[in-house]
Amino acid sequence: MSPDRELRVSKIRNGTVIDHITGGQSLNVLAILGIDGSEEFSLSIGMNVPSDRLGRKDILKVEGRELSQSEVDVLSLIAPEATINIVRDYEVVEKNRVERPTEVVGVLSCPNRNCISNDDEPVETRFAVMDDGVRCDYCSEILRDRIAEHIDV
């Protein structure tokens, strides 16, 4: 790891660094995490940073915030190459790649307006994860390229 890179991922004291986000997707990642900048903690965003692996990548550093499993699941759909670094006392103590889940529950809204999951019913949305998209468990609608637009958290 280059000294420059070391600096980028370890500048926060405690929190999470999400690296290798698909270029341009960091604002959607923030939306998934429900972060809009009004919070107390510090947050830094690097967009379109040159990357050997991705060409261009985004990087997010969030002080004092842990990711839930469902957040990681959706993250994997819009940023499949992302790595999640848990930082404690300026050290990266854990480094995880995101894994594609078999299903995502409660984070995406169905693009089919006539789907029962968009009615006022006591159910969470549920999508099966396919090779190149997700599919609504209720109405079978397939969602491919515009997943980020249907994040509903």
């Binding site: 006539n114 789907c115 029962i116 999951s117 009615d119 019913e121 006591p122 209720y138």
Partner: peptide
Amino acid sequence: ESLADTVRVIEGYADALVLRHPSEGSAKM
């Protein structure tokens, strides 16, 4: 009333339900 409530009430009256509903995925739910 939600569909989820309606079918949970009717379940108590019947041995099987036949459902026709305007929303896709309603029977699954």
